Amino acid sequence: CGNLPQLLCPMVLSEMTSNCTPGVSAVPVFVGLYTIIFTLGLVLNLVALYIFCCCSSVCSLTTVYMKNLAVSDLLLVVSLPVRIYYYSKQPCLGRQVCELTGLLLLLNMYGSIFLLTCISWDRCMAVCFPMHARVKALRKQAKYICLGVWLVSCAGTVPTYFTQKDHNNFTSCFDSRPQYVTQRGVSFAMMFCFAVLLLVMMLCSWALLRAVRRSAAARMELVNSAKIRSMIVANVTIFLGCFLPFHLVLLCYQVQDLQSEALDVAYRCTLLVASANAALDPLAYYFATETFQRMM
């Protein structure tokens, strides 16, 4: 306690431990899975950025979205070592470290959701309306669309750091019950946003499959329709598999009878699954561009 009077030492120590109580034990499964996601996500997205920025002889409009998606995924994975350290050592991390780490993950998770939707929309427009002047003009605004994605993602997630929080509920870094995202208004806004983007992706995927099936080029085998189907399956699978469980858990938090420790565990598990998209997104790159496929 340094130079503090002896009578104040118990009070200070009590306050410190009440505001930061480490978890009961380390979680090896979380440590291992987050380590795998971090390693694969870092390597694959760095390779993707190198290919898109240095090795592509033709820079298509779709690669603009993919460059931004790779950057978003890299920003997500750089936040994971804090979680790996926490689940392996159970240290007493400061509130600001925990909140900024969670903010970075949430920001880039929704950035990925928007950008995956943009990729599906762009491919759909390119195939369904290849000669439409307005569509071509809109597709050329890819840089500004990506800027809008970053702004919207920041506007929807940065308030998590400035919102009023119950400081007495902060017992451990990543094991505490989420406060901001489980608020009714915030939770419903996140679920509505996800549902709209999911609908857009499904409609674009259906339209793309329909256009390819009806095209003369596909019937004459001038285009690789199998590759296009693989691209669509990869995008939709990543989108649903990574993000749907997380949003279903947010919905469960709005049902009073489902509030339990098991739901908190489910939240942490689905957040890990959502983080896995950073390592899976390179599949979308592989199937969506001829350049990337040639380089692999």
Rank of each mutant, 00 (worst) to 15 (best):
L103H: 10
L106C: 02
M109R: 03
Y110H: 11
G111V: 01
S112Q: 15
T117E: 00
I119R: 13
S120I: 07
W121E: 03
W121H: 07
M125Q: 15
A126K: 08
V127N: 04
V127T: 14
V127Q: 08
P130T: 05
A133D: 07
R134T: 02
K136Y: 01
L138S: 09
R139D: 00
Q141Y: 05
Q141H: 09
A142T: 09
K143C: 00
Y144N: 12
I145F: 11
I145C: 08
C146A: 10
L147Y: 11
L147C: 07
L147P: 01
V149R: 07
V149S: 03
W150L: 11
L151M: 13
L151Q: 07
V152C: 13
S153G: 10
S153Q: 07
C154D: 06
C154R: 08
C154P: 04
C154A: 12
A155W: 11
P159H: 09
Y161A: 14
F162Y: 15
Q164E: 09
D166I: 10
N168G: 00
N168D: 09
F170E: 12
C173Y: 05
F174I: 04
D175I: 02
Q179L: 04
Q179S: 03
V181G: 05
T182A: 05
T182L: 08
G185P: 13
V186W: 11
V186R: 14
S187W: 10
F188N: 12
F192D: 07
C193R: 08
